[in-house]
Amino acid sequence: MNLKNKKAICIMSGGMDSTLGAYMVKKMGYEIIALHFNYGQRTQEKELSCFHKICDSIGASNRYVLDLDFFAQIGASALTDKSIEVPTGGVQKGVPVTYVPFRNGIFLSIAGALAEKEGAEIIAIGVVEEDSSGYPDCRESFIKSIEQSINLGTKEETKIQIYMPLVHLKKSQIVQHALGLNVPLENTWSCYKDEEMACGVCDSCRLRLNGFKLAGVKDPIEYQ
């Protein structure tokens, strides 16, 4: 298939998973249109800074940064409500308090509108089912249902595939794939708590550090 002028909307948080997903899409020959959301998360400024660095390194043809202030009003997540402590004690039962209600559903709906506007064929998202801390909106079945809904709710000629290449990977495999594609992991951020230096103890830092450990390489970012 000739991919010249084929466009992909890449939802990019500034984290390792979504960055690898975007690099995989780039390798497939797609033009990258980068999409980032500021939603009142604790590490918003750091994530945005990482996003712009990654866009520069990947050669994104366009980038969108959208501000979603309602997540803070909804609350119910330790990422958007500072009265809720970010857990640092390891594995929790059930859905963690860092889960942001229906975040990926909202992100993908907006990405669907952008894909229709831009004439993009795929939306890439870095969801990881097995290794994702138990978030319900990271499940493959959920993403497939959103894909169907986007195609039902857009123009007939709009045919969008949601590309989720990491959904069945472990963190160690993600690290290995990223190294193989020369992804600038030093420009990615995973910490839920802090922006200056990663805490090393929140769920996201633990998953990332364990992934690097199992992959047998050192994480290039600094930890407290």
Results as ranks from 00 to 15, higher is better:
G180M: 00
Y39I: 14
I110V: 15
G40V: 14
T80M: 01
S83C: 06
D17M: 05
V86P: 00
C50Y: 11
F71E: 02
V65D: 11
K159A: 01
L207A: 08
K117M: 11
G112K: 10
S190W: 03
P184W: 01
K26A: 09
L35Y: 03
L3Q: 14
I106E: 02
E45N: 15
L3E: 08
Q173N: 06
M24L: 12
M197S: 12
F102D: 11
A22W: 01
A113G: 10
S132K: 05
K6E: 10
I9S: 07
I110D: 02
E129P: 13
K6S: 13
C50K: 13
K117Y: 15
Q176H: 11
Q41S: 11
I122P: 01
K171H: 03
Q44A: 12
G14W: 04
A215S: 02
S141Y: 12
G75M: 10
L79F: 05
R208D: 07
A22S: 14
A8P: 07
Y23N: 15
S149Y: 08
G134V: 02
S49M: 14
A60L: 09
Q173R: 04
H52R: 12
D56K: 10
D67Y: 12
T80H: 07
L108F: 09
V97M: 09
Q41V: 14
Q41K: 07
Q44Y: 13
K82S: 06
I106Y: 08
R139T: 06
K193Q: 14
V217N: 10
